[in-house]
Amino acid sequence: MSTPARLPDAASLETVLAGLAPASADADLIPALAAAFPGFVFGLAPIDDDYWRDTRSVLQPDGTRLGELRPWMTAEIAKVGGDIKAVWLRLKETDLQITEWRGSSGFVSAPTGPGAADYIQIALGREIEWRAGPIVNPDYRPWGESELLDPSWPRADQLPDSDRLAGPLYRLLGRAGGAVIHVRSFLDRCGRIERDKREAKRPEMERRVIREVGPDGTRETPFLEAVPGWFDYVPREIRFFQDWEDSSASAQRVFAHWALDIRDYTHKGERDIGFIPRPLKPPKERLLMTPKVSVHLLMDRIEAMDREIELPFGWFFLITHGHWVDPDVGRTIAQGLKAQRVRLPDRDASVLLRWADRTYGF
């Protein structure tokens, strides 16, 4: 598959999303993207990741909007010289309400080639505006301004559909620079930035020594002699995709099973770039290492997990995620492979042993 001529960009995507009518946005999203970017086969993977926007409005019972909550409430507080109790006592007797935008995340992906990393990913939010409740909690006196400007008490309630005001609307999620990425290009950037960081430290590392105190005195070993591969470090993000391509999982696409929570920003002059992988089909139960469990029982359990998530060698990538499968499960199976007590397909065994020799995780 050759890469289509026009890769989606943030500005063009925002135009497409803005053109979706709320009444049919869910059904129209993928067709609208396909029409705007010919040559791509898009798919949407929703994520169970609810969030709230900090944009709220003040609403009268007839639906008239008085303005955004923060500036409106700030003015109300100023009218009484900052007397929070007075504002609360007055507002709790009114019929004013607040609105709230509630969203859930989703990832749109489309392949650009045959390789594991040959695809684009678009991070989206699906958002609905709701009538959230009275403008203040009538049963609880606020003790500070922030409780009026940023109320959190309505969020525990499941709202009825009759309180829906607008949406669903789709928008790009910022995600620290990762709303729209071409994954292979992103991995190339990860590798280049890591190499540049380490190369910049070459003079320092060439001077560094490791001091060991023993019965014969102090011994000094140059750091680069003790750690000869320090400049050849491969970021975990790249290893994740290398392991996918080298294993039985490569029969399926990464984006069919994982979403990438991207970060790419600069803080105090230091570039931070990478991702946290998020499983789209997590297993029902975690696989934890327990005392005296046999390696043969672990093999039965990982095979059952692969069947459940419908991905060969899928259990391994859940290990790298760090939550669903205990890394000690992988270490134990790797030891069983070395002792020839268990078997895996050759390519999967090579990946697992490589990981066990130099583990990584997210």
Rank of each mutant, 00 (worst) to 15 (best):
R164I: 12
E285H: 14
D326N: 11
A117W: 00
L20I: 07
H321L: 04
W315E: 00
Q158N: 14
P22I: 03
P215M: 15
V180I: 07
G82S: 03
R175K: 09
E93D: 14
D328M: 15
S12R: 15
E270W: 05
G39L: 06
K92L: 14
A21P: 14
R56F: 14
T290Q: 12
F231D: 09
E100P: 07
D62Y: 12
T3Y: 10
E285I: 15
F316Q: 00
V41A: 14
P142N: 08
I181C: 02
P279N: 02
Q252M: 06
L288A: 14
Q335M: 11
S57W: 15
E303F: 11
T332M: 13
R307G: 11
L59A: 04
P31N: 06
V108E: 01
Y360C: 06
E225R: 12
G178Q: 02
R286M: 05
L96S: 02
W230Y: 14
A75C: 08
V329S: 06
G67M: 03
G177W: 08
K85G: 14
V80P: 06
G330N: 02
W52C: 12
E308S: 04
R307E: 08
L297V: 14
E245H: 01
L124E: 00
A132F: 02
R286S: 08
G174F: 13
E68D: 09
V213Q: 09
L280S: 05
P279H: 05
A86V: 13
P61D: 01
D306K: 00
R219C: 07
L344Q: 00
D196C: 11
L224G: 09
V87L: 02
M289P: 13
W230R: 12
T290V: 14
V87M: 02
M289E: 07
G322N: 04
K197M: 09
E225N: 10
A23G: 08
G322E: 07
M289W: 12
A23P: 11
P282L: 03
T221Q: 05
L352Y: 01
R343E: 11
A23E: 05
R263F: 07
D161K: 13
P168H: 05
I238A: 06
E237L: 00
R208E: 15
A156T: 15
A259P: 03
E68P: 03
F362A: 11
R343S: 10
M289F: 11
S162M: 11
G113W: 03
R56H: 10
L13K: 03
L318E: 00
A10C: 08
R343K: 13
A179I: 06
